[in-house]
């Protein structure tokens, strides 16, 4: 009798053991919160003290004014003032360094790394914030057909900054493409300025890879600073406007 009883106890203990073994911690609920990082929070003095010497050394070379911006510029799609300023510089400066007439300039939207520029002084720092990458100015001789492909991909992406060309987006395709005042001619060759990142197939432009590049050896960031300085020398401020370069077909 006592033996049976002890067996029962053993079975019970074994059952209990296996029962407890199966018990484990599960996440049963969660809450979420967003902590906005603002000036209202007291700053961590140790962190600030750590990076202050680096900031001081950078500020000496970065907080140097090159030009004055006459209006706020925003980065938006399909077309924006900031995008137009950037791509216009790309066109002018590539023309200068290649000594070729540039028909079209195209810049990847993701290549502009500031979402806005505030009216007022334009500093060397702004050029770094806009274009931190070491991308170079290049030119490509593209056929009208290749420009159509280029614009179709841009249309699918919702618009990139372009100069010398305009088109409308309809069903993710580019329609009514105009180069200057003329409709796009598939048999013509258009000298097109862009950055090496795009010309090397970046941001989905693989079709450009086999096309020979006319190199400038000039960093886009340097070209931006160069242009700003030139404009200042001529007594001009920097500005940009919306010109219906890329829009959605109605």
């Amino acid at each position: 009798m006592s033996k049976i009883y002890s067996n029962k106890v053993l079975i019970f203990l074994a059952a209990l053991a296996s029962f407890t073994a199966c018990k484990t911690y599960y996440p049963v609920t969660h809450t979420d919160n967003l902590e906005k990082v603002t000036h209202q929070i007291s700053p961590d003095k140790n962190i600030k003290a750590f990076y202050q010497p680096y900031k001081d050394s950078l500020d000496k070379s970065m907080k140097v004014q090159l030009a004055t911006l006459s209006q706020d510029l925003m980065k938006e799609q399909p077309e924006s003032t900031l995008g137009n300023m950037m791509v216009d510089i790309l066109k002018v400066e590539t023309e200068k360094y290649t000594k070729k007439k540039i028909d079209i300039a195209i810049l990847n939207y993701g290549g502009i790394r500031s979402s806005s520029l505030a009216k007022g002084p334009l500093l060397i720092e702004n050029a770094y914030l806009l274009m931190p990458f070491d991308n170079y100015l290049v030119a490509l001789n593209l056929t009208g057909q290749q420009i159509q492909t280029f614009c179709d991909i841009i249309a699918e992406y919702g618009g990139w900054p372009v100069a010398g060309i305009s088109f409308q987006i309809q069903n993710k395709k580019a329609i009514n493409i105009m180069v200057g005042e003329q409709p796009l001619d598939n048999s013509k060759i258009y000298c097109t300025a862009t950055i090496d990142y795009v010309a090397n197939g970046g941001d989905g432009m693989e079709f450009l890879r086999p096309i020979p590049q006319i190199q400038t050896g000039v960093l886009y960031r340097e070209a931006i600073m160069e242009y700003w300085k030139e404009q200042t020398k001529e007594g001009k401020q920097i500005s940009a406007s919306l010109e219906n370069r890329v829009s959605y077909a109605k």
């Binding site: 911690y25 996440p27 809450t31 979420d32 902590e35 990082v37």
Partner: peptide, 17 residues
Amino acid sequence: GVQIGQLNYFFEKSLRK
């Protein structure tokens, strides 16, 4: 770094999820 995400998970010991 303009925001930090926070998730608080609460765990309990149980047999099944």
